[in-house]
């Protein structure tokens, strides 16, 4: 790790002030700290968000609002989340390992938009809203590519809201080594429309699959996906899974998510 300056922000405004001056936001640090230890990142100033009061889970009527600094373990164990959107609690409980879940936060995960992260699939699959220091961004507008989001340079996430839906499930095929999602599919059904969000698979990051959404909106049954296909050209290929295998797993995991709804 290179030498760095550490600042603990007292509020969102304070943090945004440091951010505007080039500071690097630190939420749970589950990506940033290992990257810094490898000397692959060398921020001049690290701005710790732990003192900004951004942790907490609220029932907002039709939706659940989760503060950006809420840890995965707290989402996983929240009775509110477990009752309203059990798939979201289960997803949080399956991220990383116990140590990661005790430190990692929803805001950090969503802001980083790692193509193998689980949370982006929930935000996009449920059609959630990302609340920031300046505005609200619909999930469909938020994730713009691998590690890319709609956040401006001096904008930070404060919370994420998830609509309560009738049925939802997340099924992940973990990378055997890292146990990140090699393919993760979040399926949500409500108001006669089905959303299918896929993480881990595409070189563009999390994405929705129109074909499977249409098929499932017409007939919410795994059998409706027989013959469904995913464009192999969009798939990531690595030593664990070639693009055609990933494409196959996307359909297979979607079927399993539907069956689990």
């Amino acid at each position: 790790m290179y030498q760095t300056n550490y600042v603990k922000a007292a509020s969102t405004e304070d943090a945004v002030g440091h951010l505007a001056k080039g500071g690097q936001l630190l939420a749970g640090g589950m990506t940033l700290i290992p990257t810094m230890k490898q000397r692959l990142a060398s921020p001049e100033t690290v701005v710790d968000l732990a003192g900004c009061g951004l942790a907490g889970i609220e029932d907002a009527g039709d939706s659940i609002r989760i503060g950006a600094m809420t840890r995965h373990v707290d989402v996983a164990e929240s009775a509110l989340v477990q009752n309203a959107i059990p798939a979201l609690a289960a997803l949080a409980g399956g991220i990383g390992d116990r140590q990661v879940r005790n430190r990692g936060t929803i805001g950090g995960s969503v802001a980083n938009n790692d193509p193998s992260a689980c949370y982006p699939a929930a935000v996009l699959g449920l059609g959630g809203t990302v609340h920031t220091s300046t505005r609200d961004i619909a999930a469909d507008d938020f994730f713009t590519g691998m590690f890319e989001t709609a956040l401006d340079e001096d904008e930070m996430i404060t919370a994420v809201s998830f609509p309560k839906v009738a049925k939802a499930a997340y099924v992940k095929f973990p990378n055997p080594a890292s146990r990140y999602a090699m393919v993760g599919v979040f399926v949500a059904a409500g108001d006669g429309h089905v959303r299918v969000a896929v993480t881990g698979a595409s070189s563009d990051g999390v994405f929705r699959h129109d074909g499977m959404e249409s098929a499932l909106s017409a007939n919410f049954d795994a059998a409706a996906l027989d013959g469904a296909s995913v464009d192999v050209d969009d798939m990531i290929g690595d030593i664990h899974a070639a693009p055609d295998y990933r494409a196959h797993l996307v359909v297979e995991m979607t079927k399993r998510a539907v069956a689990a709804c």
Binding site: A177, S178, H240
Partner: peptide
């Protein structure tokens, strides 16, 4: 079932961390 130390054709170890080397 899991472990494999793999070098690419240039001789770089591509399973050089637990992200890729499966224990």
């Amino acid at each position: 079932l899991l472990e494999n130390a793999a070098y690419d054709e240039t001789g770089q170890l591509i399973t050089a961390s637990y992200m890729d080397y499966c224990m």
